[in-house]
């Protein structure tokens, strides 16, 4: 059975204008934070979005959460475009797509009780009576492993891991179909990470909610995701089912990402790629393949032409001339 497509991202672009001057603004160009990316997430599935800082992961998640307007392209949730929504339609969409962010110290309002934070999406939509909402808060706290009486407490009384549980409870309140997880465990102690990841998996198994997991940590991605997309400078360079990708890394950039992780068996010699230099400025991305300035396998053609994503094996897409022949 092919699972139904929940989220479809089509040729999404987000360019930020860079200007100089206050009164007579002069355009210096555009930062292409997200430049023509497409992917889909099926209901109840997890897509991992990997890449180094500044590659456009967070902009992508903001676009999907409708916190930013795209320059071009569209995002469809259950077949309906999400941008340009107003009033009731926007509220309906908000109930379906929720988020948990990276920094548990910044994602809770210090002046609001935990219960109010969790119930906020319900209060805003007039979901039910005070009694029903209180019951739902108890239920949600129980689901994320906190005690019902903790609803009356303020965020400063909780640890980072507990705060992330509260943020998750708040995201689950409106029974969303999609939760954007922007680095949900990277700010936590290693000992807490596994707990939160397992909690996320349990919730997914029970509620059939889909996740977009934005991460830079490959171990997290491998543990959590069904599909993985690797981003570099606003583009997806490799996109495949996670099992396939972790067994057969094709793009040189993805290889470099894997080389940067400590290997499980350090004695075994593997071909390592250590990247030199910095990521080029997205204000002025290199022509041709964006990775050619740092790629150890770059050919003359890479500087002239831009490779497109193409299927190398079933479900495994790569944008690199090295794998074109296949």
């Amino acid at each position: 059975m092919i699972p139904e497509t929940l989220l479809r991202v089509e040729r999404l672009r987000k360019h930020y204008p860079v200007t100089k001057g206050i009164l007579f603004t002069k355009s210096l160009g555009f930062v292409r934070a997200v430049d023509d990316i497409s992917f889909t997430i099926a209901a109840g599935e997890t897509l991992g979005l990997v890449g180094e800082s500044g590659c456009g992961k967070t902009t992508t998640s903001k676009l999907i959460l409708n916190l930013e307007e795209p320059t071009d392209g569209q995002v469809l949730l259950q077949g309906k475009p999400i941008h340009g929504l107003r009033g009731e339609a926007l509220r309906e969409y908000r109930a379906l797509a929720q988020a948990v962010f990276q920094d548990p110290w910044s994602s809770l309002n210090p002046r609001m009780t935990v219960g109010r934070t969790i119930a906020e999406s319900l209060i805003v939509t007039g979901w039910g009576s005070g009694e029903e909402i209180a019951e739902r808060i108890r239920e949600l706290l129980d689901q994320v492993g906190l005690r019902a009486e903790q609803a009356m407490q303020y965020p400063h009384e909780f640890s980072g891991g507990q705060r992330q549980r509260i943020a998750l409870a708040a995201a689950l309140a409106s029974r969303p179909k999609l939760i954007v997880l922007d680095e949900p465990v990277s700010a936590l102690d290693v000992s807490i990470r596994a707990q939160i990841m397992n909690l996320l998996k349990d919730i997914q198994a029970r509620d059939n909610v889909a996740y977009l997991l934005v991460a830079h940590d490959l171990a997290t991605v491998r543990h959590m995701t069904d599909q993985t997309a690797v981003m570099y400078l606003g583009r997806i360079v490799e996109y495949a089912p996670t099992k396939l990708l972790f067994g057969n890394v094709l793009h040189p950039y993805t290889k470099a990402l894997f080389s940067a992780v400590l290997p499980p068996r350090p004695n075994r010699q593997e071909d390592e790629i250590v990247l030199a230099g910095d990521v080029p400025s997205p204000l002025n991305p290199p022509g041709g393949c964006r990775f050619h300035t740092r790629c150890p396998f770059a050919m003359a053609r890479c500087a002239r032409e831009e490779p497109q994503l193409h299927e190398v094996e079933p479900g495994h897409l790569v944008s690199c001339f090295l794998h074109e022949a296949a």
Binding site: A99, F101, S107, N109, M112, V124
Partner: peptide, 26 residues
């Protein structure tokens, strides 16, 4: 710039509500 303001938008709060319940108390 704090995440809870962006999250309030994700939860469907209107600008007026965000200013009253998230910004003002802080």
């Amino acid at each position: 710039q704090r995440d809870f303001v962006a999250l309030a938008r994700v939860r469907g709060c209107s600008p007026a509500r965000i200013m009253l319940t998230h910004i003002l108390p802080n």
